[in-house]
Design a protein around this nucleic acid. Structure first.
Length: 441
RNA sequence: CGGGGCGUAGCGCAGUCUGGUAGCGCACCUGCCUUGGGCGCAGGGGGUCGCGAGUUCGAAUCCCGCCGCCCCGACCA
């Protein structure tokens, strides 16, 4: 993409409404635009990142055996009345009426709908286990939306729902999602620590929140320093190997980690040596629950078992805040100059800077590399505008593409381009005809 | 929902107390110059001053009502 033909409205000054860094940088980099409190339009740069995160989440759900569907944003109130949540949910649920005065709502979550869908599609114990998920916009009418996309009212969420014959089988479904989350966040370049979470009325310990450590997080967190020494990248595992999956979950739940809501000082002291006790703040990017028959029972989600008797299914639900992750990744990865995108989610891999746009030689060299990168399928944003070099560097640092290729008279006289790594600021002179292979190797 | 604050050009702000032709910086447009870290010179465009009603010869400014947005707290992917 040529920047001269793109839509990337960057701001030089910080918008005053944005307090936290990710919100400021997203606005300044022209990724989003606020439409109302907690409601944002996604501009091209932001949308590209959102789609990349969504795709990684999707791939890891698929790999774990979940099956993608798509449910509507507007739901009928009927199902919610059956489950008892229509009244229980309170003002956070946006309620609307259609032209026939029927009660509808903008889905804040989908347990009711999915359970109803699943119920009507299956009859036999042979039809389980299954895990259905979708990636859809949700609306929760938060009292106080804030922090940009980190706490919007409208947000993109992946929510998966598992159905099993027994609680024991359900636990395996839960464990698979746990592992899928470890894999997902690792691919996003994040270290998201699983922490025991409130299960509400269900009890047990089958609920975990995944928190990205960041100063601006909304939750206080307490955890064992040993978490940092664990292997957060290699999660190759056979999802059908019940024992192996269980062991991996056990490993990542063996050390103390809790949000301030669940923090137990006595237990912390007992399990973690003083010099290994860490505390800080975290951003909740995922939350998984196993809740048994809470929704299957009132909604009559049951199958006929091998013995001919009806069995109410056991369920869990598993959420990832996809739009929140965009902000979360920035919170975890930025510097004074701006955003530093992990390659997996960067809107473009390479930023090509033509320092002397308008100069025949610089234009020719830059155009050539641009076309060659495109031909090789390397995502490149080409700053071909006639602007002073300094402004281009500042812009490129702000939007945080992982690599910058800098073409200017200084290098051109030796037939060289400069390749800069945004994250480390490492610079390397590369012969013009070797630039492309640097990104295709 | 309690407390605090803000709404004036795309962004950041001054002007409001004390009513009198709507301003500054950045951004933008034109030309020249420049091009290795937000460059320089000259010229220029852009505003129902959040909305509505009032007071007044005259309202961004005063009065009344409404709306929107942000921050702190209590609640949440």
């Amino acid at each position: 993409m040529r920047l001269s033909q793109y839509f990337m409205p960057i701001l030089r000054d910080d918008p005053k409404e944005a307090e936290i860094i990710s919100h400021r940088l997203m606005l300044r980099a022209g990724m989003i635009r606020q439409e109302a409190a907690g409601s944002y339009s996604w501009l091209p740069m932001g949308f590209r990142v959102l789609k990349k995160i969504e795709q990684i989440v999707r791939e890891e759900q698929d790999r774990a055996g979940a099956i993608e569907v798509l449910m509507p944003t507007l739901q009928s109130a009927d199902l919610w009345k059956k489950s008892g949540r229509y009244d229980a949910y309170g003002k956070e649920m946006l309620r609307v009426k259609d032209r026939h005065d029927r009660e509808m709502l903008y889905g804040p979550t989908n347990e009711e709908v999915i359970t109803d869908i699943f119920r009507s599609g299956i009859q036999s114990y042979k039809d389980v286990p299954r895990n259905l998920y979708h990636i859809q916009w949700k609306f929760r009418d938060e009292v106080r939306p804030r922090f940009g996309v980190m706490r919007g009212r409208e947000f993109l969420m992946k929510d998966a729902y598992s159905f099993d014959l027994t609680a024991e089988a359900g636990q395996h479904s839960y464990n698979k999602m746990f592992v899928a989350y470890l894999r997902t966040f690792a691919r996003l370049g994040l270290k998201a620590v699983p922490m025991r979470a409130d299960t509400g009325p269900i009890g047990g310990d089958s609920s975990h929140e995944f928190l990205v450590l960041a100063e601006t997080g909304e939750s206080g967190v307490f955890f064992d320093k040993d978490f940092h020494a664990m292997d957060w990248e290699n999660f190759d595992i056979d999802y059908d190997d019940v024992g192996a999956v269980k062991n991996l979950v056990a490993e990542f739940t063996s050390k103390y980690a809790a949000t301030d809501e669940k923090h137990d000082v006595v237990e912390f002291d007992a399990r973690v040596a003083k010099d290994k006790q860490l505390s800080g703040r975290g951003i909740e990017v995922g939350h998984i629950f196993f809740f048994g028959d809470t929704y299957s029972k009132p909604l009559g989600c049951e199958v006929q078992g091998p013995d001919g008797k009806k069995v109410t299914l056991q369920s869990g639900s598993y959420g990832i805040g996809v739009s929140r992750l965009v902000g979360g990744i920035i919170e975890a990865s930025h510097d004074k100059g701006g955003i530093i995108w992990p390659e997996a989610v960067a809107p473009f891999k390479v930023g090509l800077i033509n320092i002397k746009a308008g100069d025949a030689e610089a234009d020719a060299a830059s155009d050539k590399i641009y076309k060659a990168l495109q031909a090789k399928g390397v995502e490149v944003l080409y700053d071909d505008r006639a602007q002073p070099g300094g402004a281009k560097f500042a812009t490129m640092d702000l939007i945080g593409l992982p690599w910058q290729v800098i073409i200017g008279p200084r290098g051109l006289k030796d037939g060289m381009a400069e390749v800069k790594h945004r994250k480390t600021d490492a610079r390397e002179n590369v012969a013009l005809d070797k630039v492309v292979e640097k990104f295709t190797a």
